[in-house]
Structures are given as structure tokens and as C-alpha cells.
Design a protein around this nucleic acid. Sequence first.
DNA 1: AACCTTACCGCAAAGGTTTGCGGTAAAATT
DNA 2: AATTTTACCGCAAACCTTTGCGGTAAGGTT
Lengths: 345, 345
Amino acid sequence: MSKRTSLKDIAKELNISVSTVSRALRNVGEVSEETRRKVKELAESWKYKPDPLALGLLKNKTGYIGVILPDPVNHYFSTVLHGMNIVAQENGYHLLISYSYDQSVNEQKAIDDFVWARAEGLMICPAIDTIDIRKYQQIGGNGIPLVFVERDIPEMDVPAVITDNYKSMQSLMEFLIGCGYRRIALITNLEYYSVGRICYQAYTDVLKKKRIALRKELIIHGNMSISTSVEAARHLLQLTPIPDAVVVTDDCSAMAVMKVFQEEGLSVPDDIAVTGFNDEPFTSYISPPLTTVSRPGYLMGMKAMELLIETIKKSKSTTDCEKIILESDLVIRNSTIRSPERWTR
Amino acid sequence: MSKRTSLKDIAKELNISVSTVSRALRNVGEVSEETRRKVKELAESWKYKPDPLALGLLKNKTGYIGVILPDPVNHYFSTVLHGMNIVAQENGYHLLISYSYDQSVNEQKAIDDFVWARAEGLMICPAIDTIDIRKYQQIGGNGIPLVFVERDIPEMDVPAVITDNYKSMQSLMEFLIGCGYRRIALITNLEYYSVGRICYQAYTDVLKKKRIALRKELIIHGNMSISTSVEAARHLLQLTPIPDAVVVTDDCSAMAVMKVFQEEGLSVPDDIAVTGFNDEPFTSYISPPLTTVSRPGYLMGMKAMELLIETIKKSKSTTDCEKIILESDLVIRNSTIRSPERWTR
DNA sequence: AACCTTACCGCAAAGGTTTGCGGTAAAATT
DNA sequence: AATTTTACCGCAAACCTTTGCGGTAAGGTT
């Protein structure tokens, strides 16, 4: 049960004052060479390190960055966290982590706790059901830098790092239409702060541009869990005619949807095409390989953390309010490549 | 930039001492009803909350639990983290997280930092290359409870929550042999603190028991990355005859291995069977669905956190040293179910 | 001999909380 | 009227560090 050694311990041992020890160790103030040497030697051998709590109290700095993500069990968010962790570690910060499980109430609690614990910065992916936006302002009010990641709230003056989901979805839709697909269904999360919301926008915009009628029955809102997506897929099969393509804004759900179709005896993509979102590792391994949108989660986490730490360091909360938009790529695989002769059916 | 309100602020406003305010708020000591009421009202309206840093300094408690995992981008570890988070949250603890990336040096750094930051407990999945075990003892030396998760170090007197990997691997091997497979290859991580090490043990033990010769060329060590596993798979195809089954101790790698075989024109499982480990969600969706071992990551995280918090609360570091072993299940799917007539080939 | 530099070093406050102990007034007792 | 009790409350230390300011010697200057 080795007690931690404090300045006081060293001071007592050397019969000098605490302040002298402090100055000696930090090479500031006027301390004789003799004393400085002795202090440093003793500190070394006793493995003195300043107490982070005392330092935090004094300087109002803790070295902690609070991270709030919607879900721990999500490959994409994991890559984001990975990127954040690498950069934080490089800069000597530690990560306090909390998960909102996409519920605003949890997020609010985490924010309060982190602010109160003097986190030096907050990195948040807003919960999908967020309606009260003031909580984010309150953070700024406490002088704590905040960065949004993955989900932005445009009307807020907060830096954010996101991907160009609108553009990606646009490309995807144009690609599908270019292939010849016309009855394109959409399974997505329509809640406001969600990838799905933006995808929905792009979906309708492209259809309009291409003069394809928007059919409500082809749009299904879901929370992107496997079970609800399976249900959605079954629902789509009730329609006559069934869709010729289904865009799902999540890889896992897309995988499950595809399986429903296959179990019903349909061929993907010859009877019905399917696409996903995120390009998770398995997508190229399932059968058929999934057409999806590859997004740079790792890079996003890094960029966001760099932005946050930069803001912390210049500590001006300068409200530059950079909104960094990273590019994502359409990855075309066999789940949408229909053999030409099958178009005649 | 709203300043946080302290006891001093309330005391000054009410013209009483700080200690009285403190006592009034905590319902201890002797304070007149009148004063207590006024203090509480003001504290309420000024939203007073005790400062965690000051409290930490005083009580040597921070409400933080340090978690060190090998890898953020791993579905299984994510489910473990999820379990830990749920229980920690319920008990009012916050999670400080760090990733070793399976390198002991990172782990050591994280341990030092967390201990120094007065984390109240540590939850560690030891880095795979751990050789110096003293670092864990040092934690106990500082009076901080420690729990191992997912990977145990049996010779250490530290509580641990793990799964019965030996038994699972035993079942898997016996199942395969029962099916008729005889040239069973193994792609695994043979480093000491790894699932793979234990699987290797079970592998050899079962072969011995079943009087099947152990062939060195069928055992390939790898770090369970997709690229090295692909390489391993290619290597296995050089052998004559090729194995009739390949056990891979990771689902992602198994998926990649399977793809190599299929691209080489082999049928899984008719030409060669493949199995994985962990039962990640995609395993039932790939083609053929993967036989694998389902492990309760979420439960493991919960149990481990419960154990840790319990130890913290009784604060005796009683060295009960419980080693909790959770059961896992063999999940048999088509990647090992060979049609009877194919056994004749 | 009286004064000023110089070179060190310590005090105390600040950051915020808890807590043992001592103190003071009013009320109760003898 | 003198003493004890009761009911409150404040001081100061403790946890640990930094830092402005004041203080004390020794040595040098006039």
C-alpha cells in the first residue's frame, strides 16, 4: 500500500519548504543549484509525480476529454473512437467515455457529469432524439470546447466533422437509376439527427430530378435494428409489384434484409437489388457482396479530435466553427449488378 | 461563462461559515432548522453540486473506473464494453478508457496513468504480449481493485471473468471429428495471453484423445488480422492433401479464409470446412453460414464490472479472487455440414 | 558603521470540500 | 445568582499544488 509521495514529503525530508521543492522541480524561481539537485534526486528516487487532482483544482485542467457516442456495439462508431483515441493519446489526453444509446436523457446526464468533472473538451455525436438544443449551448457557456462528430446540427455554431452523406446517397441513387432500377425502396431512420434523414432528402431529390414518382409505400422508417429491418423487408414483399431495389442505410440491416429476400426464394440482385451503408468488413464477404457507401470513420475520429484539441489549446473557443465534411465513396458490388438478360423479365 | 458555485459562495451570501453550509447540505452535525432550510434553498437555486476534484482529493475517490482493452475495433470487445458500461452507469461510476492495441508498453502507460489519477478500480484485458506481470501487482500495491476480463493470468491472485474456451474448443473439435473430419487445420494466435493459446491446448488434447496424429504443418500462428489469415489459408492450400477442415479462432478471419477457398474454386464445406469464433452477427448471413462458438460478451462485461464494483465497495481487496467462467455455446451452421454423398469423394 | 544588492527561501492564499474540536450565546438547572 | 446544559456555529487542518510577495541572511558599497 505504497503512499503516493507529495511535495510535502520531499520538503520534510530535506527540511525545506514545499514551495521551494515545487520551484526546484519545475526549474522556475530562484533556487540554489545545490538544493535543486538534492530535490530532483529525491524526487526521482521517490518517483514523485504531481497529483492530477490538486493540479486540476488549481489550474482548472484535468487532461480529460469527454466522449459521448450513441452506441458501443457498432463497427462504424468503433472506428471513429479508434481515431479519436489515437490522437488523444498522442496529445496526452485521456478519454472519458459515455454512451447515450441514442437517448437524449442519457446524453444530458453525461454532459452534466463531464462538464462538472472539468473535462477539457467534449466530443459528442448527438442522440438521435435530440430536441432540446440548449444543452449544447450550456457547454459552451461553461467555456468548454465542443465538437460534433458524425452528426451535425447545422443551426448550431459548433465545429463538426461529418461525411458527405447527401452526396453519397445522391451518387448511390443516380447509380441505381442509371442501372435501370425504378421502384427503389428506402429503409432508413427518419429521425432528425440521423444519417437517414439526409439520405431521405437525397432520395427524394434524386427521384424528383429524374422525374420518377415518389411512392410513399416504398419508404419505411425504422431504427436500423435487425429485427425491425427484417419486418420492413417482409412488408416490402407484400407490395405488388415488389420493389426492384432496396436501399438500406445500414450494412447490418441490409444484410438481414437481403437474407429475407433470399429465404423467400428471390434472387439478389436479379429479382431485387439491395444496398447498405458504411462498408463494414463483412460486406464484401456475404453473398452477393453488398453495394454500399464507404465512409472514413477512423479519419473522422482523428480529424474531430485534432479539431477539439486545437480548440482546447488556443482555449479561445474562437467559434471558428469549422464544419469539416469528409468524402465517402460508393462501393459497387454484386448486390446491385444485375445480369443484362435479367432486365428483360 | 457561468462560474461554478462553491460552498464558499453560499456561505458568503448567507453570512455563515463554509463548514455550516457543508453540514447543512449533508444533513449531518448540528445546524438549526432555519439555517438548514435557507442553505438548501440557496443551494438549490444556485444549482450547487460538490466539486468532484476537491472531493477526490479529500476522500481519495474519483468515481472513475479505468478500462484497458486491446482493441476498439472488435465486435466482441465492444459487447464487453457495453456490458461494463451499463453496470458502471447504474452504479454512478464513469469509465476512463484506454486501448493497449495488444502492446504491453501501452498497457503499462495506461495503468500508470489511471492509478495516478486515482481510478477507483481497474478492469484490464491483458495485452497479448504481456511478459512482465509485476505491473499488475503494483496496482494491488496501490490498493486499487483489479479485475481481469476475457483473458486471465491463472498464476495471479486477481479476480477474472472469462469464458470456457477450452471446453468450447473441445466441443468443436469433437464435433468436427464426429462429423468425419480428420485433417483439421488450426489458424490461431499462439501467444500466451490469448484465446488462441487455450484453443491450441484443446486442439492437441482432443486429437491425442481421439488418436489422430498431430501434424505441425496444419497449425499456423497468426495475429488474426484478415491479411495474415488470408496468407495462412493460401498456405494451407499448398499442402497435399489439403486439410478437410480449418478451425480459425476468429470470425472475421474465418470469413476471409473461407473466401480464399471459394475463390480457389473449392466448396465449403464439401471440399473443406471452416469454423470461426465469437458468433458475430454476420456469421449467420455469410454463405455458407459459419459454424462458430457463441460467447456471452455482454454478460461478461456486466459480471466483471459487478465484481469490480463489489470489490471497490467493500474496499477490502479481500482477495477472494473469484475466477468466474462463463459458458459458451457451439453454434453449428452449414460451413461444417457436408452432404453425406460428399464424404465418399 | 550604515546602507543596498543579491541570492535564496518561506508564508499564505487559492482552488473546494470535510471534520474534529473549540467556542459562544441562550436556556435550563441548582 | 451562579453554574451547567443545550444548541449552534466557526476555526483550522487535511488533501496537494502553484505563485505573488515578503523576509532573511550574506556579501558588497559608500
